[in-house]
Design a binder for these strands. Structure first.
Lengths: 229, 229
DNA sequence: ATACAGGCTTCTGTATACAGAACTCAATCC
DNA sequence: GGATTGAGTTCTGTATACAGAAGCCTGTAT
C-alpha cells in the first residue's frame, strides 16, 4: 500500500503558494504589459491595497524584482520601474546571442530522436502561425522553440540566465518591433537539421547568425521608429 | 559658489546604508568562507539575534540570497544553504567559459592603450604573487585581472552575469582546488597581447582555451579528491 | 518679487505581534 | 514489539505599529 500511495501522490495535494510569489508574478505582468511605465514610482501601500495584501509580501516581491532587474530600489525612496536605455538593450541582445549559441551547441550534442521530433512539431506550429498571420501565436511559437532547445541542452544554469535575459529583451522590444517572418523560420529549420545530425559546431553557427539577424532586425525598427501599429 | 558645491558634493555626505544589504553581505561571507555549511538550515530568529537586527532585514536578505542562488527557500520551512551538485558545478564552468570568451572579444575591440597598460600591471602582480608562492594574492590577482577585462568590455549586463557565476565557481572550487600556476599566467600574457592588438577573434579563442584548461584542472583535482592541504 | 527657512505630510525602513503549517516526540492501540 | 496518532513545540508567513528620512508647501524676511 505504501508504494501505491507514493506512486499516486508524488505531489502534495495543496501547494502553500506563498503570497510573495503571486505578487511577484502580478507585478512582472503589469510591467511587461506596460500598465506600469518605466520610471514610475511604485508605492508599497498602494500596491498592497490594490492587490489585497499587506505591505510585507509586496516588499519581498520588490526585493526580488530588483535583483532580477525589473525595478530600481533607491534607498529611502522606494521602488521605480526600471528604465532600460538603448545601450542596455544592445548589451542584452549581445549576451543573449552568446548564450543562445552555447545552448544550440549543447542541444546538438544532447538531442535524442524524440527531441528532434518535438522540435519539428514546434517548428510546424510556427510556420502555421506565420501562414495565419497570427502575431501572438507566432511570438509564442518562437519562444517555445527556443525554450525547448534550451531544455534539451540540459544546462539549468544556462537555462535560467537565458530566461531572464530573454524576458527583458521581449519587454524592451515587443512594443516597438514586429516579429521576424519567413526567413527566421527557415533559419530555425536549418538549426533543427544541424541539431538532428548532432553537428554541434554548425548548430552554434546557425544560431549565432540567427540571433545576430534578429538583433539587426530589432535595431533597424528601433532606428526607423516604426511601431507595430 | 553653487557650482563649486555641486562639484564637491557629487555624493551625499552619508549613505543610509540599508540593513538588508549589510545582512546580505554578512551572510554571503559566512557561506563562502564555509561557516555556514551546504544544506544547513538557517533560522531567521537565530540569524537576527546573532547579527543584532530584527527578523525583517534578515528575511529580505534571504530572499535575495535565494534569487542569487546561495540558499534554497523551501515554502513553510525556511532557508537552507544551497548544496551545489557536481553537475551544477560543471554547468557553471561551461557557462562561465562562454561568458568570459565573449568578454575577451569585446575587450579586444574596446581596449584603449591605458587599459592595456593596466592589464600588464595586473599581470605583473600575478607573476609576482606566483614567484612568492602567495596563494591568496595569486587568487586575488587572477580575479582582478579577469574583472578588469570584463570592465574594459563595457557590457554591464555581461559583467553582472560573470560576477554572479564567477563567485559561485570560486565558492565551489576554492575548498578543493589550488590555483593554476605558471602556464595560466603565460596564457594571460597571450590574452593581453591579443587584446592590445585589438584582435577580437584571437582574444576570444585564447580565453576559451584558458577557461577550458582551468575547467579541466578543477575537474582533475575534484576527481583525485586532493584538497589544498 | 524672490529666496530661504521651517513645519508638515508621506513614504520607507525596522521592529513587534499573531496565526497557521510542519516537525518532534511520546503515549496508545493493534 | 512496532506502527500510528495526537498533542506540543518551533518556525515561517503575514499583518500591524512605530520611528526616521525625504520631499513639498507655505510663510516670512530681504
Amino acid at each position: 500500500m505504501r508504494e501505491a500511495l507514493t506512486a499516486a501522490a508524488t505531489r502534495r495535494v495543496t501547494r502553500p503558494a506563498p503570497l510573495r510569489q503571486a505578487v511577484y508574478d502580478a507585478l512582472t505582468e503589469l510591467i511587461v504589459n506596460g500598465s506600469l511605465k518605466p520610471g514610475q514610482h511604485l508605492v508599497e501601500a498602494e500596491l498592497a491595497e490594490h492587490l489585497g495584501v499587506s505591505r510585507q509580501p509586496v516588499r519581498e516581491a520588490l526585493q526580488r524584482l530588483q535583483t532580477d532587474g525589473w525595478v530600481d530600489l533607491r534607498p529611502a525612496q522606494g521602488a521605480f520601474v526600471h528604465s532600460p536605455t538603448e545601450e542596455e538593450a544592445a548589451q542584452l541582445l549581445g549576451v543573449r546571442a552568446v548564450l543562445e549559441t552555447y545552448s544550440a551547441q549543447l542541444a546538438a550534442r544532447q538531442a535524442k530522436p524524440e527531441d528532434v521530433e518535438r522540435l519539428w512539431k514546434l517548428h510546424q506550429e510556427g510556420v502555421d502561425a506565420l501562414a495565419a498571420s497570427d502575431v501572438e501565436r507566432l511570438v509564442a511559437a518562437n519562444t517555445a522553440l527556443h525554450a525547448f532547445i534550451t531544455s534539451v541542452a540540459g544546462n539549468a544554469v544556462l537555462a535560467e540566465l537565458i530566461a531572464g535575459v530573454g524576458q527583458k529583451v521581449r519587454w524592451y522590444y515587443t512594443p516597438i518591433a514586429r516579429p521576424r517572418g519567413k526567413e527566421a523560420w527557415n533559419e530555425h529549420a536549418q538549426l533543427i537539421r544541424a541539431i538532428a545530425k548532432g553537428d554541434s559546431e554548425r548548430a552554434g553557427e546557425v544560431m549565432r547568425k540567427h540571433t545576430e539577424r534578429t538583433t539587426g532586425f530589432y535595431r533597424k525598427q528601433l532606428a526607423a521608429g516604426t511601431g507595430q501599429d
